[in-house]
Simulated scan of single mutants.
Amino acid sequence: METIEWGDFERVQIRAGTIVEVEDFPQARRPAYKLRVDFGAGLGVLKSSAQITDLYAREELEGRQVLAVVNFPAKQIGPIRSECLVTGLHREDGAVVLAVPDKPVPNGARLA
Rank of each mutant, 00 (worst) to 15 (best):
N107C: 10
G63Q: 11
P79T: 15
G42P: 00
I52H: 13
A50C: 08
A57F: 01
H90I: 04
S49Q: 03
P79K: 07
K75G: 01
L55V: 06
R81I: 11
D24W: 10
A57I: 00
L61G: 12
E5H: 15
L61F: 03
E92Y: 01
E92L: 02
E62C: 05
R15M: 06
G17Y: 08
V12T: 15
P31N: 06
G88K: 03
V69K: 05
V22G: 02
R58I: 10
L67H: 00
I77V: 12
A95P: 11
V20S: 12
F39D: 00
V86C: 08
D8W: 09
V86T: 03
Q76Y: 13
G78R: 10
N71Q: 15
V97W: 15
S49T: 15
A50W: 01
E2I: 09
K75D: 02
S49A: 14
A41E: 11
Q27F: 11
N107L: 06
V20P: 00
Q27R: 10
E92Q: 09
L55S: 04
K34M: 09
G7D: 09
K75W: 11
P104T: 14
P101A: 08
F72E: 12
G78H: 03
P79Y: 09
L35V: 05
E83W: 09
I77E: 05
A109L: 05
V70C: 12
L85F: 13
G63M: 05
D54L: 02
K75M: 12
R64W: 04
R30V: 00
F25I: 01
P26I: 09
V100R: 09
V37D: 00
Q76T: 14
A95D: 02
V22Y: 09
G94V: 12
L67T: 01
L43F: 06
F9S: 06
P79F: 06
P26H: 13
N71P: 01
S49W: 13
R110P: 01
I19H: 03
A99D: 02
G78V: 05
R30K: 15
G88E: 05
P73D: 13
R11W: 08
D8T: 11
S48M: 03
A109T: 11
T3I: 00
I77Y: 08
E10A: 07
F25L: 13
R11Y: 08
R29N: 14
F72Y: 15
R110L: 04
V70P: 01
A112G: 08
I19G: 01
V97F: 14
